[in-house]
Simulated scan of single mutants.
Amino acid sequence: MPWRVPPAQKVAGVRPDPYRVWMSEVMLQQTTVAAVKDYFHRFTTRWPTVSDLAAARDEDVMAEWAGLGYYARARNLLKCARVVVAEHDGVFPDTLAGLLKLPGVGPYTAAAVASIAYDLPAVVVDGNVERVMARLHDVHDPLPGSKPLLTDLAEALTPEARPGDYAQAVMDLGATICSPRNPACGICPWRGPCAAQAAGTAAELPKKTPKKPKPTRHGIAYIGRRADGAYLMERRPDKGLLGGMLGWPGADWTEAGAAEHPPIAANWRQVAGEAKHTFTHFHLLLQVRIADLPQGANPESGHFVEAETFRPADLPTVMRKAFDLGFGAFDNVG
């Protein structure tokens, strides 16, 4: 992993960069390593230090984050970088208490940075560690209620020596061997003391409280293109879903049905099909309307993004799905 420093390099005096550790941990929240790697490379190439990131334009960072999801993380990334530069001279705090005071840094991220970057004996508990602890101790109480117990069990095993290497090892154990399905117990280094392995219950742990079914919401995306190729877009409010991201104008998404709210009077045409997307708490079905707009169009809301600066890749996934659905239909609009 590009943010890791192997033990052999540490012995040679190479220390983990707290900026890269923090960046990776923020990106990895509810996101897989495979999805994060390319984003991490792009961010750290474009903004190699926390000072570079702090000086970046909000819209550039949000555009670079597009597609990774959970966009509040990108806004907190900027807030945190700017606090580190403004209040800590561009150096991340080297204590758990200091890290916890940074914007967007919760107990897990603070513990990960403290442990991995500064080798402090902080307790790092992610989903992989929870699974390892639940199986190691044969804990049948379901998550999320059992999280405090699993954290206590993880703390009891956290060593004073090389806690950063230990934290990464346990997370890797959960990701590669003690996996959610079909754990490879036969090659696990903790097979001997594992209570769930002895009881034959490893595959069914950790147990989780059943989730409620996700509701389905409906909406409309209005994709208007001006004669010169510019697209009518809006930047969503900083707070809320897809906060700070560019998107297509439209009304709120509701379970009651799609509400008509075009940003400008035009010959809007509905495109066949729907853009389908699943968020954490609901499914979304998005109808797509397209229209050719005159060069002097004056919309009620939103702004035009010139053709030479518009990049579909800068859009969040659901907005890109709507664009992909509507783009090919423009040639058929009368």
Results as ranks from 00 to 15, higher is better:
R15Y: 06
V26C: 13
M27L: 15
L28K: 10
Q29T: 01
Q30V: 02
T32E: 09
V33G: 11
V33D: 14
V36F: 07
Y39K: 15
F40I: 09
R42A: 15
T44K: 09
D52C: 08
L53Q: 13
A55F: 06
A56P: 10
E59H: 14
M62E: 02
Y70L: 09
Y70I: 09
A74W: 00
L77E: 03
V91E: 15
F92T: 13
P93A: 04
A97V: 15
L99V: 07
K101W: 06
G104E: 12
A110W: 09
A114R: 01
I116F: 00
Y118V: 06
A122K: 06
R131E: 01
R135E: 02
D138W: 00
D138N: 14
V139T: 07
H140A: 09
K147Y: 15
P148Y: 03
D152R: 15
L153I: 02
L157N: 04
P159D: 05
P159T: 06
P159Y: 07
R162K: 08
R162P: 03
A167D: 02
G174M: 13
G174D: 08
G174I: 09
A175N: 09
P180L: 11
I187Y: 04
C188Q: 02
P193N: 00
C194Y: 04
A196F: 02
A198D: 00
G200M: 10
E204N: 12
L205T: 01
K208C: 07
K208N: 11
P215A: 12
T216Y: 03
I220H: 13
Y222A: 06
I223A: 13
P237R: 06
P237T: 09
D238L: 15
G240R: 04
M245F: 07
M245V: 07
L246P: 05
W248E: 08
W253H: 15
W253N: 10
W253M: 15
E255M: 10
A256R: 12
A256I: 05
A258S: 08
A259Y: 05
E260P: 01
V288E: 04
I290E: 03
A291N: 03
L293P: 11
A297T: 05
P299S: 10
S301Y: 07
E308Y: 05
T309K: 14
T309S: 15
P316E: 04
P316N: 06
M319E: 12
A329V: 05
F330C: 00
N332I: 01
G334Y: 01
